[in-house]
C-alpha cells in the first residue's frame, strides 16, 4: 500500500473512530443503560447527564495517563536503577554521576543562557511586530510572513539556518549568507560560525527566536486589538505621545498576556532539543539538557543518567508550567 493511502486510511480510521466512539457510547448511555422512559425516566435522565462528561473525557484521560502520567513514574524509577547491573536499585547514584559530569553543567549553563535570551527577545520582537503591523493596510501580509516560521518544524528551521551559517573553503563561493556578507564587508577568511564557543550558542538561539517571534506576535496582536479604543483616545486627549501611549497605556493593559507569552516560550526553551541536535549535536560547548538526556539515553545506552536528566528538566519546567496555567486562566476571566 502506498504511504499516501496509509495516511488517508489512518485519518479516516482515526477521525471516524472518534466520532463513532462519542456517538455510540452516547447512544448506549441514553438507550440501554438509562433510557428516558418508563417509571424512572426523570431519574434516568439525571443519571445519564451525570455520567456523560466522564464518558466524553475518558479517551483523553486514558491517553494522558498512558503517555504522560505513567512515563513520569517509570522515568523516576529508571533514574534510580542501573541497566548494567540488570536494573538493580542504586539510589541516587545516577544523579551523583550526572553532577560529576562537566557536560551536564555545560548543558545547564547553556539552558540558562537560552532561558535568559529567547523568551525576552521573542516577546519583545513579537510585541514590536504586533504594534507596527497594527492598522496598516499590508499589516496582515507582514504578519503572515513573520508567522510563517511557526509552520516549519524545528529540524526544518535548523537545516535552513545551517545553510545560513555554512562555511566553504576560502577559494570557493560561499553559499552561507552570513559568511558571504562577512567576507563582503570586513572578513578575510570564512568562519565556521557553529564551532566558535559561546557565540555558537547565540547562533543557535537566533533560530528559536526566529520561530517563536511569530507566536508572540499573533497572541500579542490579538491582545492589542482587545484594548478599548476609547482609553487610547482619552490618552491622546490627555496629551500622551505615541511612545507614552504604547508604554503607559497599551503595555500595562496587556501585561497579563505578555506574561503568558513569556512563560509559554520559557517552557519551549527548557525543552529545546531538535535545533541543537540537528545543528551541532551539542559539540563545541553548545550542549543543552534535552540533548544531553538523548545522548545518555540512546547513544550511551545509560538509562539511569538519561532518566535523571529527564527528571531535572521536568523539575525545572514544572513551576513555570503551573504559573503559566495560573496566568492563562486569570487572563481568560
Amino acid at each position: 500500500m502506498s504511504p499516501i493511502m496509509q495516511a488517508a486510511l489512518t485519518i479516516v480510521i482515526g477521525v471516524g473512530g472518534c466520532v463513532g466512539y462519542f456517538y455510540l457510547s452516547n447512544q448506549i448511555l441514553d438507550r440501554v443503560l438509562f433510557p428516558a422512559r418508563g417509571a424512572n425516566a426523570g431519574r434516568n435522565i439525571n443519571r445519564a447527564n451525570a455520567i456523560r462528561p466522564w464518558l466524553f473525557l475518558f479517551p483523553a484521560i486514558f491517553a494522558l495517563a498512558l503517555y504522560l502520567a505513567y512515563p513520569v513514574f517509570e522515568t523516576l524509577r529508571l533514574s534510580l536503577t542501573d541497566r548494567s547491573l540488570g536494573g538493580a536499585f542504586v539510589g541516587l547514584e545516577n544523579y551523583a554521576r550526572m553532577t560529576d559530569d562537566p557536560k551536564f553543567w555545560e548543558a545547564l549553563r547553556n539552558n540558562f543562557l537560552w532561558l535568559l535570551i529567547v523568551p525576552a527577545a521573542s516577546t519583545a520582537f513579537g510585541l514590536l511586530a504586533a504594534q507596527l503591523t497594527d492598522r496598516i493596510r499590508w499589516g496582515n501580509i507582514a504578519k503572515s510572513l513573520i508567522f510563517m516560521p511557526m509552520a516549519i518544524s524545528f529540524v526544518g528551521a535548523a537545516v535552513i539556518f545551517k545553510l545560513v551559517y555554512d562555511a566553504r573553503p576560502e577559494d570557493v563561493a560561499q553559499i552561507g549568507i552570513l559568511n558571504a556578507v562577512y567576507l563582503q564587508l570586513c572578513g578575510d577568511s570564512p568562519i565556521t560560525w557553529l564551532t566558535v564557543p559561546f557565540w555558537n550558542n547565540i547562533f543557535l538561539i537566533i533560530v528559536l527566536i526566529w520561530i517563536q517571534t511569530g507566536f508572540a506576535m499573533v497572541i500579542l496582536s490579538a491582545a492589542l486589538r482587545g484594548i478599548p479604543e476609547e482609553t487610547i483616545e482619552a490618552a491622546i486627549v490627555d496629551g500622551a505621545n505615541p511612545f507614552q501611549i504604547f508604554f503607559k497605556i497599551k503595555v500595562p493593559q496587556i501585561a497579563g498576556t505578555i506574561v503568558v507569552v513569556w512563560t509559554t516560550i520559557t517552557i519551549v526553551v527548557l525543552k529545546v532539543f531538535d535545533i541543537v541536535f540537528a545543528m551541532t549535536n551539542g559539540q563545541w560547548e553548545t550542549q543543552v539538557l534535552a540533548n544531553y538526556m538523548y545522548d545518555k539515553l540512546f547513544r550511551a545506552n545509560d538509562w539511569g543518567v538519561g532518566s535523571a536528566a529527564a527528571m531535572v528538566i521536568m523539575i525545572l519546567v514544572l513551576p513555570i508550567l503551573v504559573w503559566n496555567v495560573y496566568n492563562a486562566r486569570r487572563e481568560m476571566r
Binding site: P228, E230, T231, E233, A234, A235, V237, I249, P252, Q253, A255
Partner: peptide
C-alpha cells in the same frame, strides 16, 4: 479641551 467618553474610558490599570 477635555472629553468625557461614553464608556468613561478610564485607564483600567
Amino acid at each position: 479641551i477635555a472629553m468625557v467618553f461614553q464608556s468613561y474610558a478610564l485607564y483600567p490599570h
